[in-house]
Amino acid sequence: MGRFLNTIFILFVVCWICSFTNKAIAGNAVKTDVRIIHASQGQNHIDPKLSDLAEELSTVFKYTSYRLIKEKNMGLNENQKGVVKLPDERSLVVIPTRINGENIKYQINIFKSGNQVFSTQILLKNKRSITIGGPKFKNGYLLFNISGKTL
């Protein structure tokens, strides 16, 4: 019985250490996916790749068309800059400044013709996403959906 309890204890400690190691490893890099969406009140259309997000957005926006303009998947280390080119000489810069198992802190900057027009710091929950929108584009607006997942 003593050996049984010892074995259980050792295995429990190993699992406990593994769970911490997992979190430590998870803190090294983050998979960041950026989707550039054109939302407008044109002809009804929902891009199949946006079906999950469009359903959510339609609860707060009155747009009838959601088109995926561009998608970029990046594996970023802490403080590594990820750049996504946008229409109309715009660009989006996303930097994971702090990564842990629960949250990812992002610095997000939007530039237009080289000038910064928007900047935000967010604390994104792991495996979830945020949508930033506002810039006008082709009778509609641009939306940037940014999701993060620790690796």
């Binding site: 939007i110 928007f118 900047s119 935000t120 710091q121 929950k125 979830r128 996403s129």
Partner: peptide
């Protein structure tokens, strides 16, 4: 149950 993200700060020419 909670929000997907917490916005710490917003800045820019807006």
């Amino acid at each position: 149950i909670g929000p997907s993200a917490i916005v710490n700060s917003v800045d820019g020419n807006v």
